[in-house]
Design a protein around this nucleic acid. Sequence first.
DNA 1: GACGTAAGTTACGCTTTAGTAAGTTACTAG
DNA 2: CTAGTAACTTACTAAAGCGTAACTTACGTC
Lengths: 207, 207
Amino acid sequence: MPPRKKLTAAARRAQLIEVGRKAFAKKGYEATSVEEIAQRAKVSKPIVYEHFGGKEGLYAVIVDREVELVVALISEAISSGSPRERLEKAALVFLTYVKDHPDGFAVLTHDAPVTATRGNLSSLLNDVAERVGKVFAVAFKQAGYDARTAPIYAHALVGMVTFVGQWWTDARKPPVEKVASHLASLAWMGLRHLPKQPTPITKRSTS
Amino acid sequence: MPPRKKLTAAARRAQLIEVGRKAFAKKGYEATSVEEIAQRAKVSKPIVYEHFGGKEGLYAVIVDREVELVVALISEAISSGSPRERLEKAALVFLTYVKDHPDGFAVLTHDAPVTATRGNLSSLLNDVAERVGKVFAVAFKQAGYDARTAPIYAHALVGMVTFVGQWWTDARKPPVEKVASHLASLAWMGLRHLPKQPTPITKRSTS
DNA sequence: GACGTAAGTTACGCTTTAGTAAGTTACTAG
DNA sequence: CTAGTAACTTACTAAAGCGTAACTTACGTC
């Protein structure tokens, strides 16, 4: 079979999503043109419109997929275990996501179209932080702390992980497990009582 | 004197910077048009070009001012005191900045123009984190910790403060001093050893 | 009150880009 | 081989937006 010239609708759709993700990841929504995406997919512009109705349609699909993915990963990670385990697993899972899906992550960090009400990384993380905050509020109340301060800690933790993830994107620094472990140590023990060698939640063969 | 129709060059320039900051804060660089800015300033488009040479010129001036301001504030905050005091002061100063200059902060959070090499909030914060990381590396070495892990902690702390700042923008939650104090507590003691009532670095008359 | 100049406007050219209408090509089933 | 159709292209419209050339108006000054 000589190289195909026409793809099935499903295959083309999938390809456009991939290409679009790369493009939006690089320049953000506004600075990326439909023409550009079409060219990279070696296809003409109307194809994009046939599949997604327009620029925002494609963007929406791409962002939605990433959001669903991240939410699923985080939800799974914090579904069980001790508080500390949950935090470490969440950090691990998020960092792994950033590592394995750099384009998707980049798309989320860029500005969303002005018309969109949601879809930013900020809004996603705020949702996560809010959920964590509610859990904290309960725990704080039981322990005799001021429950109104819970959101501060929740957002601090989410911000911590996120920003490390962003930094971690650029340069291939230490392995994810180590980083996640350090983050968990910081959150749990503070700088004052850092262990010399943080104990990873998952034992690895790396010494 | 009846209401003026013409402003001096300096006054108009200042006004355009203010108006531009608000506009860029709302929709980001790409989605904001020069026409729009001119209209809001009740002036015609060429005025903007006279003063700043173009859209990017105006944007560059606005961002530069904000970056300089933040850098100056943070530098001052971490110039002296114990490590913990420095962290708390830095958090306090940053949160205060976010509170007092919401538009400037918003501009920094949006995407920079594609042509720009720097000017993002990310790059600014990465610089800060890198500086902190170097200080940490020295301290880690002295204390017998792995100095290569220092950047993790540095970035974690910066991310912590930043994300809380972002969250704090929307809703007027607890006073800055409290928030900064909680952040410092978290960083120093960890969730495991949180004090019931964090002691603010600056004694206030509030209770 | 005339006049020089800083400040400002109108009206345009040109490029980019979102979106569409109408026609064309490659694959596939009989 | 032939037809039907799903996939695709060419060629366009309309609008938005950056930037500029040429002209006008208000203000201070003698």
